[in-house]
Amino acid sequence: MNHYKYFLFDLDGTISESAPGIIKAVQYGLDAVGIHETDKERLSTFIGPPLNVQMKKLYHMSDKDIVTAVTKFRELYETKGIFDCRPYPGLDMLLPSAVESGHILAVASSKPEPFVKEIIGHFGFAPFFSVICGSDIGDELKKRAVISQKARII
């Protein structure tokens, strides 16, 4: 750990076990456009990539249906799903230890930045990160979210 000065973390699947909230909200969004997905393995592929990209890839949805599904996803996710997650064990010890050792920590997520900051704050981890970045909240609705957007965010 001492060889590196900077540590860059993703949020979903790295800091946060976020599957429950995301999967429920994805199902809610897909239901709104007539897609009733129950395959947990398929639903778990929505953890990480931009929603619009994954919806197009898996279901070949129209742009209009993607906007509807993402809007419905957010309706549930922003009110209930955002905190239907938990931090991975050991991070509460790793993060302060890394900062005390002189490391600089950052978060870069494809999730919209306001959500990233809210979750990191909810876990009490915000003081340990020098930078917390995410996507623009409108990217998925305006078809600007692409699979390679993580590089732009970083």
Results as ranks from 00 to 15, higher is better:
residue 151 A to T: 14
residue 120 I to N: 08
residue 143 K to W: 04
residue 6 Y to L: 06
residue 29 G to S: 06
residue 115 F to L: 07
residue 145 A to W: 09
residue 96 P to K: 15
residue 151 A to Y: 10
residue 59 Y to G: 15
residue 134 G to S: 12
residue 123 F to D: 07
residue 94 L to P: 01
residue 86 R to P: 03
residue 100 E to I: 05
residue 56 K to G: 14
residue 2 N to S: 15
residue 60 H to S: 05
residue 74 R to F: 00
residue 57 K to D: 15
residue 150 K to V: 00
residue 123 F to A: 12
residue 89 P to S: 14
residue 10 D to V: 08
residue 36 H to D: 07
residue 103 H to A: 09
residue 141 L to E: 00
residue 65 D to R: 10
residue 41 E to M: 00
residue 146 V to E: 15
residue 120 I to Q: 13
residue 72 K to R: 09
residue 95 L to W: 07
residue 143 K to S: 12
residue 16 S to V: 00
residue 140 E to P: 04
residue 118 E to S: 01
residue 110 S to A: 07
residue 3 H to T: 06
residue 66 I to F: 01
residue 34 G to K: 02
residue 78 E to K: 09
residue 1 M to L: 13
residue 29 G to L: 13
residue 24 K to S: 12
residue 151 A to N: 06
residue 1 M to C: 15
residue 41 E to C: 13
residue 48 G to P: 02
residue 103 H to Q: 12
residue 127 P to N: 14
residue 89 P to V: 07
residue 78 E to C: 01
residue 8 L to V: 15
residue 110 S to V: 04
residue 29 G to K: 07
residue 12 D to H: 02
residue 143 K to D: 15
residue 131 V to I: 13
residue 59 Y to H: 15
residue 1 M to G: 12
residue 133 C to V: 02
residue 104 I to G: 11
residue 70 V to T: 03
residue 121 G to W: 06
residue 76 L to K: 03
residue 32 A to P: 09
residue 16 S to N: 03
residue 133 C to M: 04
residue 24 K to Y: 03
residue 92 D to N: 05
residue 16 S to E: 00
residue 94 L to E: 12
residue 49 P to K: 12
residue 43 L to S: 11
residue 85 C to M: 04
residue 129 F to M: 06
residue 116 V to A: 13
residue 71 T to Y: 08
residue 56 K to V: 14
residue 45 T to F: 04
residue 150 K to T: 09
residue 81 G to K: 02
residue 129 F to I: 02
residue 62 S to W: 00
residue 2 N to F: 14
residue 4 Y to T: 07
residue 114 P to C: 06
residue 7 F to N: 15
residue 152 R to N: 03
residue 113 E to Q: 14
residue 94 L to I: 09
residue 135 S to Y: 10
residue 95 L to G: 06
residue 2 N to T: 13
residue 5 K to I: 04
residue 135 S to D: 04
residue 65 D to F: 14
residue 35 I to G: 09
residue 132 I to Y: 06
residue 9 F to H: 01
residue 23 I to C: 11
residue 136 D to W: 05
residue 52 N to Q: 11
residue 114 P to N: 05
